[in-house]
Design a binder for these strands. Structure first.
Lengths: 230, 230
DNA sequence: CTTCAAATGCGTAAGTTTTACACAAATATA
DNA sequence: TATATTTGTGTAAAACTTACGCATTTGAAG
């Protein structure tokens, strides 16, 4: 049974990736619909018996081949009433992160093509997707300061300089290397391994690892991160 | 035109009020539906051409008589697939604040009765509304620390002790009166008036006022509040 | 093999913010 | 006039942030 309500529920996924000191967003070229051929966020309509987050996972998987690691609800965009001329669409946006290394893009179903776009090279997108990305980027930036959300974007073992570069890139600001290391290590959930960086010039740095179990313990105790830098 | 999608879109409003050192939530007793007679959050289905936030304002107004001041999107609850046995309901929850003083409750349409419940006396609610309130309360608490969200709950002019009590009540912790005043005044958007508290014992305190224009200026400059206390 | 540039690891002093508390001033009431 | 209550202001200690200096380890160049 259905009310006489002419609204369709969709989901969109804003999936961030990081590589070579740049932040990327996963986009698809639309195969069907009123905005055929335009680039857009992966997403689509929710199935009747499907949880919202599962709908996002499914759509991203179908349209890009990417299996998302971290995913959380961002915002529900429902006021763009003319988004589709045929009916109103309300879309629940989720934002997520993925380590794009070795992640093979494999567009199917509704997508002609899938591609990682560096955030400063994103073309004009379909619907209100440019605005949605802006909101997602703000959320990513603010979350970086109080949740260990950046680690999903790196390899599981990483030199400290990578983590530092990630923060500088996403926050778009300089960070003092030495103070950053001190601060992050003092938080207690980033631990050193006995491995070292293999390639590159200069003294090879130790590799570190994010200990999520430790983090959850600390989180439970109510310890706050407050990772801020100058 | 409508897809073959059996999902109905609703909104819920979590409206907080503060009075006499207690935090309240606005609830209604349901008149119709599968959970008739149970207490619930005000809310209802979205009209086809209605913005989500307007739907919340309308439903809260209709069901309780309350005209909400501050309102922002909280979260979209869509996984409780069995909420209504007749069809699936996805609900976009908004949380808001209101100064309940002189606010007359006037339930109509879907509500038998409307009432402010102190948050520690809330009965078992319909649907997943108890969970929704929990999420809203968390958001209110965390927002209090970095946005001037508490002022909507007070009169426009207030003694400092009221603001301090509000923070202590909502955050459920002791705050040092002197450090709190210093910190808040240093932020620069709470200004003193030349009026004084009228009643009560002890030395009458100056009344203060939230200057939202000043706050917006400071916000634009990127100044952060970080109102934390011991 | 020595020198150099680049990246890393560690430390410390100065500056800023937070925390903990003490006491004087203004009012109502007894 | 004395007392309880609430308000207004200050200040020292502790904690945290910021700004750097310098020695160490590596690969590459001479």
């Amino acid at each position: 049974m259905k009310l006489a309500q002419n609204i369709n529920l969709a989901v969109d996924g804003i999936i961030f990736g990081y590589e070579d000191q740049s932040l990327f967003v996963l986009l698809i070229k639309q195969k069907y619909g009123s905005q055929k051929g335009k680039w857009a966020l992966p997403g689509g309509f929710v199935l009747d018996n499907e949880k919202l987050i599962d709908a996002v996972k499914r759509e991203v998987r179908e349209e890009t081949g990417v299996k998302v690691q971290y995913l959380e609800q961002l915002y529900t965009f429902g006021d763009n009433i003319d988004r589709d001329p045929r009916f109103r669409v309300v879309s629940v946006a989720y934002f997520g992160t993925v380590n794009p290394k070795h992640m093979i893009l494999n567009p199917t179903t509704d997508a002609l093509e899938a591609k990682w776009y560096a955030i400063d090279t994103i073309p004009k997108l379909a619907f209100d997707h440019s605005d949605i990305i802006k909101v997602a980027l703000e959320r990513l930036r603010s979350k970086l300061n109080y949740q260990p959300i950046g680690f999903n974007l790196l390899d599981s073992k990483f030199p400290f300089s990578d983590l530092e570069q990630l923060y500088m890139t996403i926050l778009d600001q300089k960070i003092d290397r030495r103070n950053f290391r001190k601060k992050v290590l003092s938080l207690g959930f980033v631990e050193e391994t006995d491995e070292f960086r293999k390639s590159g010039s200069g003294r090879p740095g130790k590799l570190f690892r994010f200990n999520s179990k430790k983090y959850k313990e600390l989180e439970k105790k109510g310890i706050n991160l407050d990772i801020k830098f100058a």
